[in-house]
Amino acid sequence: MSSPPPLLIHPAPPASFGADQRVAWLAGRQLGLVTRDQLLHLLGLTRHQIAGRIARGLLIPVHRTVYALGVRPATPEARAMAAVLACGDGAMASHATAAALHGMLPWRRGPVHVTTPPSTRRVAGIAVHVSHSGPSVGTTRLRVPCTADARTLIDVAGSDGAAPARRAWSSLAGQRRLRPRMVEHELRLHSGRRGTALVREMLERHRLATTGHTKSELEAAALQLCAAHGLPLPAVNRLVVLQDGTYEADMSWAEARLVVELDGWATHRSPEQFEDDRHRDFDFELAGWSSVRLTWTAVTAQAEATARRLRRRLAVGRESVPTDLAPGQAGRQ
């Protein structure tokens, strides 16, 4: 018995469409491709109708359960889409294929790379990578589901080595799409994986070049500030769960509903990161938290003034937490 369509569920086509119009409608949304399950369950075709269209050349088999409408996939992104569709639910283009979709590396000959959850079917002709680390942040490029920038960097570093990884990093930086915070988050999720050491090295070199200091130096200076001025020590690099999102905070005090971000301005000056930071701050504000950003100067040369401000905010935060709310509920970490 066939299962429901595994990927890219679409709204139903217009009721006035005939069978061939419905097939063309769906293929047009997937770079000229459809899956057998989608034809059966989304468009309502029968097995006999599918077989007839294959016999007439209207549907051309690309993989065992994926068909092209009229002509075989002619572009690299269409071949990537075919591979993702063939691998089923949760599949994303990854590694060198995702890097090409992102414009981080050029397209190259060879199999399409796809990352899938465990227990996903293997497909001949596709380089399938099984992820055991849970769902990864995905995105869509050129209409193809693929791993996001940061995960792609780690995959390329692990499978292709230093030269392609550095080229991919430089491409992202040149496109002003490099987001150090997202890279660091992926590194923590996949700690110990092949490629993470190389990406961490590139991240620290980037921070050193743009701010003059590494993230670890800035964190150490911030913790030293807290200890030297008698401030409560914060939780470091913990997740804070809010109604509108889950965020990793460089430093956080749950009882006072305060988070501190330690990255300097140079690591967040891309338009996308600027927007992300605004959304993040808004979500904290809506949840009754404060989000404070501290630079290297603030935690070193201006340490006394910064400590005084933090002490005042921590005192206000503790007073404002409702008495019927347990400390651990002020923000789950």
Rank of each mutant, 00 (worst) to 15 (best):
A86Y: 07
L101I: 05
R108H: 03
A91K: 02
L69I: 09
P73K: 04
A127T: 14
A98K: 04
A100F: 01
V137E: 08
S133L: 08
V84L: 06
R121G: 11
H102N: 02
V34Y: 14
Q49M: 11
Q38V: 11
A83W: 10
G88A: 04
M92F: 12
P145D: 07
P111M: 09
A55E: 12
A127N: 15
V112Q: 13
A78E: 08
A93D: 12
P73C: 02
M92Q: 14
R64W: 04
G103C: 03
D155Q: 14
A99H: 09
H63N: 01
R36S: 12
R122D: 12
T75P: 03
H132Y: 07
M104T: 02
T139E: 15
P61H: 01
A83N: 11
H63I: 01
S94Q: 06
D89P: 05
R64Q: 10
G103E: 04
R36P: 05
T152W: 07
A74Y: 02
M104Y: 00
S131Y: 09
G32H: 07
V128Q: 15
T46Y: 03
S136M: 13
A82H: 07
H102E: 00
H63C: 00
L42D: 13
R108C: 02
I54A: 14
S119G: 09
R79G: 02
G90S: 03
A100N: 00
A27D: 05
T116N: 12
